[in-house]
């Protein structure tokens, strides 16, 4: 897949960086190019990655204090007067506390407000379950007109930030505070709504987003040693979902695994299942994510293991869907028993 410009994660040392950093580089790039952006924050500039932007562009930065609801409404007003807004707050504060304002003023008005959920997924790590946002993708996805993007690494995070500025309506972009592997480069194509096929294969497909794309690539490599050709797709845009690539994966490989660092209810897995159930023939799907529970304290990489979000877990999920694809019910039950 040389044309994708990917890092060879199997043969080189993989660098890591928080996707928040790519977000900030995108904001600085936009401001340097004279785009009329305003970056808003609710007392999180220090941790969410907009501290450097604040220093360099104080006139374009607005810290609203711990008023997430007022921040969303103020953003709506600024957007009504022609500004391009980027809001940064914890994923769970945006998606939870301020959801009604996002819905009733920003989305109902189809306003140019980009909401950036920092420290999302399990990346709030040690802070534990109350501060980890696992439901944000699901609740944002239900809003009419909302675009939802989960970048895989810091490089893609910058591209997503630049792309969000060009989308006239509301956008939710989810970032991680934890360091995650850098697997794409400046050469890797990125278009909102177009998933990237990062590895070819005809036996099964893994559709992943965020840090799980890296884990999916490792899982596919592991399965290759077992003689299985597994396709890996970076589904960075959860909404609008790239139905063409999802449908093709279903038709051509006949077995799908989705992988995300969030709830198994309503996220990428939900989006894929909804799309397939209503288009192509029934296809076995396995949704890898966090199953209807809150997170807990720990280091990010420990939590990924604890919640079953590693390459090994994804590989097991692929074997399970393959059993169903081939109709081997005994195998299905054996996998189900663990």
């Amino acid at each position: 897949m040389a044309e994708m410009g990917l890092v060879d994660i199997h043969h080189s040392v993989v660098e890591t960086e928080a996707t928040n950093r790519g977000y900030e580089r995108g904001l600085i790039d936009l401001a340097e190019r004279g785009v009329d952006i305003i970056v808003m924050d609710a007392d999180l500039a220090g941790s969410s990655g907009t501290g450097e932007f604040r220093k360099r562009f104080p006139d374009r930065f607005l810290d609203i204090g711990l008023c997430e609801q007022d921040m969303m409404g103020t953003a709506a007003g600024l957007a009504l007067a022609g500004k391009c807004i980027f809001i940064t707050t914890h994923g769970m504060l945006a998606a939870g506390k301020a959801w009604d304002i996002i819905r009733s003023t920003i989305c109902y008005g189809a306003l140019n407000v980009n909401i950036c959920g920092a420290d999302a997924g399990l990346s709030a790590g040690a802070a534990g379950g109350s501060r980890q946002s696992l439901e944000d993708v699901a609740v944002m996805r239900t809003l009419p007109g909302m675009t939802v993007i989960v970048p895989t690494d810091a490089v893609e995070a910058k591209k997503a930030t630049l792309a969000a500025a060009r989308i006239p309506g509301p956008v939710y972009v989810r970032f991680a505070a934890a360091r995650v592997p850098i697997i794409t480069t400046d050469l890797t194509p990125f278009t909102v709504g177009q998933a990237g096929v990062y590895r070819q294969g005809d036996d099964a497909t893994i559709l992943a987003c965020g840090v799980m794309v890296y884990e999916a690539l490792k899982a596919a490599r592991k399965l290759e040693d077992e003689g299985l050709g597994v396709r890996v797709v970076n589904c960075h845009t959860i909404k609008p979902l790239d139905r063409a690539i999802v449908n093709r994966a279903a038709v051509e490989t006949g077995a799908l695994v989705t992988a995300e660092e969030g709830s198994t209810i309503g996220g990428l897995g939900g989006a894929v299942a909804e799309a397939l159930a209503q288009t192509v023939r029934p296809t076995p799907i396995r949704i890898v994510g966090i199953e209807d529970r809150f997170g807990e304290s720990g280091k990010h990489e420990q939590l990924l293991q604890h919640f079953g979000l590693t390459a090994r877990d994804i590989a097991a999920a692929v074997r399970e869907v393959l059993s169903r694809k081939h109709g081997r019910q005994d195998d299905v039950e054996s996998v189900a028993r663990g």
Binding site: L62, Q69, D70, M71, M72, G73, T74, A75, A76, G77, L78, A79, L80, A81, G82, K83, D100, I101, R103, S104, T105, Y108, G109
Partner: peptide, 20 residues
């Protein structure tokens, strides 16, 4: 000038317009 519906949200919108 602004879509509204959910109570208590208008003043924030007015503030944002005035800031711009």
């Amino acid at each position: 000038d602004a879509s509204v519906g959910s109570p208590g949200q208008g003043l924030s919108i007015a503030n944002g317009i005035a800031m711009a």
